[in-house]
């Protein structure tokens, strides 16, 4: 007979998690900040995937976006500036049952945490990483970030910043064992959701670069982004991030791209002629996951551990 077994038919989850089950404190981000939009979409993602809040951990560093874990009704770790990656790696290393998300900002990731960032890419531990890049330090009130464009005026570069910005996509794509790189924007919910969903589906270090506006300290960027609609090109690939027709129509331009081709991905990451390519730039499903090694010998009993100790002591017995 086809169909479900009788006993399976009744297997309805004991608990259905609704959006409220993931909502904690009222976010204290500024009105108009894109962080709100990411939070909403993440909560939606959690509900769609019915993630167990007790087995979901949001890890962050320090900065505006790093307040994120406080607004999720899941486990959270709001740690040190620039150090979300080592903490998240330690959490996931021997807990394959946990779903780990990392929230980091452009200062947190690309400046103080740059060393940890590079190595986290290489470890390729299974986690969903969101880099909120608004190209400015917000929480400490308007300082230049390593991703600020040349000429950015801030409290630390009142005459305009002079160094070219770090391109987080290029940097990520330059590290050995990179496995997933995508780019999205905070003001297009459909694309944002689809991108986060694809990142979560990927096994490995899924890096999502979220282009953002800071309504308080980067008001000029807002104009640039909105008036520069032509700048945004949708990456299309039937095996990549696929939008529905309606959502696709929000983009004027698109480009076909093979996300298994790292050189092509690096080319798109260049932002040549001021173009931003949104979607999946690169994916390698075969990359080595360090957490597979980390979890290769779980669950030893006290007796097993004791017997190794006794063997080792015997080797040094007189």
């Amino acid at each position: 007979m086809f169909g479900l077994k009788l006993d399976m038919a009744c297997e309805i989850p004991d608990k259905y998690y609704s959006l409220e089950d993931y909502e904690k404190a009222e976010p204290r981000w500024c009105p108009g900040c894109g962080d709100h939009s990411v939070l909403t979409n993440i909560q939606k993602l959690c509900r769609e995937k019915q993630l167990d809040p007790a087995k979901t951990v949001f890890v962050s560093g320090i900065g505006c976006s790093s307040r994120f874990p406080h607004y999720m009704k899941t486990y959270g770790f709001h740690g040190l500036h620039g150090r979300a990656f080592p903490v998240a790696s330690g959490i996931k290393f021997r807990r394959p049952d946990l779903d780990v998300f990392v929230i980091t900002g452009d200062g947190d990731c690309c400046s103080i945490g740059a060393g940890a960032w590079v190595h986290a890419i290489r470890y390729n531990i299974n986690m969903t990483v969101m880099l909120f890049n608004n190209e400015i330090y917000g929480l400490t009130k308007n300082q230049t970030s390593p991703t600020s464009r040349v000429g950015t005026k801030s409290n630390t570069s009142p005459r305009g910043s002079i160094l070219p910005p770090i391109n987080p996509l290029q940097t990520t794509l330059g590290v050995a064992n990179v496995s997933f790189v995508a780019q999205t924007v905070d003001w297009n919910p459909a694309h944002l959701y689809a991108t986060l969903n694809a990142a979560h589906e990927h096994k490995g270090f899924s890096f999502v670069h979220i282009v953002q506006r800071c309504p308080v300290f980067q008001p000029d960027l807002v104009d640039e982004f909105t008036s520069g609609k032509d700048a945004f090109h949708l990456i299309k690939n039937e095996n990549g991030i696929v939008l529905d027709e309606k959502a696709e129509k929000t983009f004027k331009n698109s480009v076909e791209h093979d996300h298994t081709d790292i050189n092509a991905a690096r080319h798109l990451a260049e932002h040549e002629n001021g173009k931003f390519y949104l979607g999946l730039l690169y994916q390698n499903k075969e990359a080595q996951c360090y957490d597979d090694y980390g979890a290769h010998n779980l669950g030893f009993t006290a007796e097993q551990k004791m017997s190794v100790l006794n063997e080792e002591l015997d080797k040094r017995a007189i």
Binding site: V57, R83, F85, P86, A88, F93, A116
Partner: peptide, 14 residues
Amino acid sequence: IAAIGFAIGASYAG
């Protein structure tokens, strides 16, 4: 720094 951060993460996770 990452060495202790990793250890703290692992400890937090039990």
